[in-house]
């Protein structure tokens, strides 16, 4: 599984982008998106998902149910 960004809520502040340990976040068409195949839910890096922790809008970086939970190698 991975995190995704709720586009309608994203303020495009860019705070999440540099915090991601996997470089999974980038800007696209004036908003930010997470590449699901790169996102590890921060497992192996930090105790909490960095995008969630830094995002100023609650419930904007959320679990994307379309993918299975990330399994640490």
């Amino acid at each position: 599984m991975a995190y995704k960004i709720v586009t309608s809520q994203c303020t495009a502040c860019s705070a999440c982008e540099p915090e991601c340990p996997n470089n999974a976040i980038r800007e696209k068409d004036g908003t930010f998106i997470i590449k699901p195949e790169k996102c590890t839910e921060c497992i192996g890096y930090f105790d909490e998902p960095q995008c969630v922790a830094v995002c100023p809008v609650d419930d904007t970086c959320i679990i994307d149910g379309a993918y299975p939970r990330y399994q640490a190698a």
């Binding site: 303020t11 495009a12 502040c13 705070a15 830094v54």
Partner: peptide, 13 residues
Amino acid sequence: PACNIQCNYCNRK
């Protein structure tokens, strides 16, 4: 554009 805190007098829009 980014910020690292939240203030109660701020709306980050």
